[in-house]
């Protein structure tokens, strides 16, 4: 074998390096996908980050709106996304934290905002209504109850996590 044959020609060199770089890029794209496909635990972890929203002592039996921010990351940037929750204690003293996002087309609902239907959540967009526990009033546009936030109480503070359809939270 002569030395010559072993020399890497310019074309081969380019080929090697390009496959190398391409390989890296492919790995960069594939790795996160593979990770998510294989490892649901990793996904769970991101979903359960909870944010302190209110002092438990401030929560009454009347729904109050608390605003907070969660960090969201999409393909391009990281941002603070503003969120709110309607929070109250039911007659058993359990905390209920409802998402204000209307299940019809996503407007923000308000408590007690419609004079002709007191003590309900009201959506100003197409007049959707929900009872205090978030159940949609039949005959109004929404077809599902308001989502409920997962919550925990620690050191007198209320922490909220993801809002989930009722039955799951």
């Amino acid at each position: 074998m002569s030395e010559k044959k072993h020399r890497v020609s310019r074309r081969q060199f380019l080929n090697y390096t390009l496959t190398g770089v391409g390989g890296f890029m492919a790995a960069g794209i594939l790795m996160p996908m593979v990770r998510f496909a294989l490892d649901p635990i990793l996904r769970e972890e991101e979903a359960t980050e909870m944010v302190a929203v209110a002092q438990v002592k401030d929560i009454t039996t009347e729904p109050q709106r608390f605003d907070f921010k969660v960090k969201v990351k999409d393909a391009w940037y990281e941002a603070d996304e503003p969120k709110s929750a309607w929070v109250y204690k039911d007659e058993k003293g359990n905390i209920i934290a409802l998402s204000p996002i209307c299940k019809h087309l996503g407007c923000t609902v308000n408590w007690n905002a419609d004079e002709s239907h007191p003590n309900q959540f009201f959506c100003p967009c197409h007049y959707g209504r929900y009872t205090k526990d978030g159940t949609n009033v039949p005959g109004t546009p929404p077809l599902a109850p308001l989502d409920r936030y997962e919550y925990k109480v620690k050191d007198g503070k209320l922490y909220l996590g993801k809002a989930k359809p009722r039955g799951e939270a």
Partner: peptide, 8 residues
């Protein structure tokens, strides 16, 4: 828009 997105 965020609060009235279903109509606006």
């Amino acid at each position: 828009e965020r609060q009235l997105k279903g109509r606006l």
